[in-house]
């Protein structure tokens, strides 16, 4: 049983191949560090995995079904470059909306519980646009995790987080791994990523330069992977 599989995925932007024949499989509970330089295709691959874009060729299966299947999307949590929250809505309204869309039995109760968990219950009626950057990031984390997803797709989740948000994210990721969630995280922060990861995938110009289990060498020396498999 694979939690996530990618078979010969190609993606073109015009004539430019952003992804070339990318293939890998992840077992349930795995944590994949998706690595690569800027423009290597990490975000494109994550968007395809999240069902936000279709591959030109190849196939993606998440939990045994198509990424666009409604039941699959119910079990995926996606954090992209944007926080995915409405500036004109309050913190509570934002979370209640997404709890409702993800089919929570009690959307308001779920929203309140997550506001408490992320330390935002005191400002629950404040509009998202009035929040500081750190508060917005914590609210975004609440949005991604509030339905307890089985698959997490996180695009540079540690970028620009303040220390409090990093602590919350680390706790949420640890909890997700405990319950057996599969995690894919794209990042430039090699040390954090390789400490968490069970697997690593290095993309170089849209091609898979390395895919396999994370080895002790990678954790000890985060640049090891780039030295051995990256472009010189």
């Amino acid at each position: 049983m694979t939690a996530l599989s990618c078979e010969g995925v190609w993606k073109f932007f015009g004539d430019f191949p952003a992804l070339r024949q990318v293939s890998f499989e992840l077992p349930p509970g795995a944590c994949l560090a998706l690595l690569g330089r800027n423009g290597a295709g990490k975000t494109t691959l994550l968007r395809i995995l999240a069902g936000l874009s279709r591959p030109a060729r190849g196939r993606v299966r998440i939990l045994g079904t198509d990424a666009r299947h409604e039941t699959t999307r119910r079990r995926i949590g996606v954090l992209g470059h944007g926080i995915g929250l409405y500036d004109e809505l309050s913190a509570f309204e934002n979370l209640r909306l997404f709890a409702s869309l993800y089919g929570a039995v009690d959307p308001a109760g779920t929203a309140l519980a997550w506001l408490q968990r992320t330390g935002l219950e005191a400002v629950k009626d404040g509009l998202a646009r009035e929040f500081s950057r750190g508060m917005r990031q914590r609210l975004a984390l609440a949005r991604v995790f509030l339905h307890e997803p089985s698959v997490l797709l996180l695009d540079e989740p540690f970028t620009a987080l303040d220390d409090r948000a990093i602590a919350i994210l680390q706790a949420l990721l640890a909890e997700a791994r405990t319950r057996g969630a599969t995690i894919v995280l794209s990042t430039h922060q090699l040390r954090e990523a390789l400490e968490l990861a069970t697997h690593a995938l290095l993309l170089v110009r849209g091609r898979t330069a390395y895919f396999g289990e994370r080895t002790p060498e990678m954790a000890a020396d985060p640049a090891w992977l780039y030295r051995h498999y990256g472009e010189s």
Binding site: R73, L85, G103, R143
Partner: peptide, 15 residues
């Protein structure tokens, strides 16, 4: 468009 909300909606289980 602001904050990539469309992505959050399209990735959610909303038909």
């Amino acid at each position: 468009l602001p904050n990539d909300c469309l992505d959050a909606l399209v990735a959610s289980p909303v038909a």
